[in-house]
């Protein structure tokens, strides 16, 4: 018997795993094709990517993040993540199953683990989400001066509509991952390096981080288009991710 609730729990756990490049959930991007929960609480996850050549380092990051996100569910005994139709699928699948480091998957082709690239893309996600929140708050009348000085507690205290709350949550989620620890009295808006915006020309700063967001959106669009064509071409039938694949925006990230 497959437990429907548990399958849903797995999908929900997967929805917080993002493609680092696009900063969107692997579920909303339709990368995950199937989730199976066996009676002994073993979980199998199948996923695919838009091209046969998608960067193996990102594929590895996503596969291991999916494994970890699902393994964190209390009842899960074992997780297997399987990437298909990718030139390094075998290496990635084996390595993720063995909980190896990326270095072990591609011996001789790396000079370290993936932590620096992970940090770099977390930084992009931070800037992208900050930009969306800043533009939203600018439209609501906040001034550059306020952004320079506002404390996290003040940002939290702002009365916002649901859209604003969602943007704030997405931003704070990434901020916490960037700067772990108690942040209540720290500045709400800092650069990716943790510096205050005091010395920044606000307009120029906004333009700079807008570029980051546009790049991510462009990549997201291209990925979706290529994946759609690839799926059509391969004549895939019975897509299990149906109904989850059309959410197109940040709110689909499912982060709370």
């Amino acid at each position: 018997m497959i437990c429907v609730d548990r399958t849903e729990e797995v999908w929900s756990a997967l929805s917080v795993v993002t493609d680092p490049e696009i900063d969107e959930s692997v579920v909303s991007l339709d990368f995950v094709t199937d989730v199976k929960v066996a009676s002994d609480s073993r979980v199998e996850i199948d996923f695919r990517l838009p091209t046969y050549w998608c960067a193996p380092n990102f594929a590895f990051l996503m596969a291991s993040d999916m494994r970890d996100a699902v393994a964190a569910l209390e009842w899960v005994t074992e997780v297997s993540v399987k990437l298909s139709d990718h030139f390094s699928a075998d290496l990635i699948n084996r390595s993720v199953a063995l909980r190896q480091d990326f270095r072990d998957a591609f011996p001789g082709e790396t000079d370290g683990d993936l932590s620096s690239i992970r940090r770099k893309f977390l930084g992009y996600a931070f800037e992208r989400r900050q930009e969306l929140l800043l533009r939203y708050l600018v439209a609501k009348g906040q001034t550059p001066d306020w952004f320079r000085r506002a404390l996290l507690s003040e940002l939290m205290a702002l009365p916002l509509d649901p859209e604003g709350i969602s943007l704030r949550n997405l931003y704070l989620f990434t901020m916490r991952r960037m700067i772990p620890g108690g942040l209540q009295e720290s500045l709400a808006f800092v650069t990716v390096n943790g510096e205050s915006l005091e010395a920044q020309d606000f307009k120029a700063y906004l333009r700079q981080i807008t570029g980051v967001r546009r790049t991510a959106e462009f990549n997201g669009f291209l990925c979706r288009s290529l994946l759609t064509e690839r799926v059509k071409r391969m004549g895939e039938t019975g897509d299990k991710g149906e109904g989850r694949s059309t959410k197109d925006d940040l709110s689909a990230n499912g982060e709370r």
């Binding site: 960067a55 082709e109 000079d111 690239i117």
Partner: peptide
């Protein structure tokens, strides 16, 4: 294009 060594770096 992607897939430039070392693979753990940002290949793009």
């Amino acid at each position: 294009g992607p897939t430039i060594r070392p693979l753990n770096k940002d290949a793009f």
